[in-house]
């Protein structure tokens, strides 16, 4: 196989939200910082259009999983800073465990095919 980076994959629905919540769990961030975080931490394996972050954030706001307030970024711009709510934390926990269960399932199914 040629040593080439594989095509980045699309995300499944809800994956982006899950990642945003996880990042916000550690500390509150503004939109651009969130985008940077995802790109760096995923090692560019995931293809996330930066713009798609904003509908996702609006969804989370609407579901009251995060709150937003205006603040100032490191470069001095007026930005909205997102913060995880208690409800968001609980939701994240549930989603992660569901995701792990799913991953586990998929892995198990795939395992014998490999051996």
């Amino acid at each position: 196989m040629p040593k080439r980076k594989e095509e980045p994959r699309d995300l499944f629905p809800g994956a982006l939200e899950m990642m945003v919540l996880e990042i916000l769990r550690r500390r509150p961030l503004h939109g651009y910082a969130l985008a940077q975080h995802i790109r760096e931490r995923s090692d560019e394996l995931l293809r996330v259009e930066e713009g798609s972050l904003y509908p996702a954030l609006q969804r989370l706001l609407k579901a009251e999983l995060v709150t937003a307030e205006w603040g100032v970024s490191a470069s001095g711009r007026r930005v909205r800073i997102y913060r995880l709510t208690a409800k968001g934390a609980k939701h994240l926990e549930r989603e992660v465990s569901k995701f792990e269960q799913m991953l586990e399932g998929i892995t198990r199914v795939l395992a014998p095919a490999k051996s």
Partner: peptide
């Protein structure tokens, strides 16, 4: 929302 998005683009 547009202010936020424009801030994002400016940062980038």
């Amino acid at each position: 929302l547009s202010e936020e998005i424009h801030a994002h683009l400016d940062e980038k």
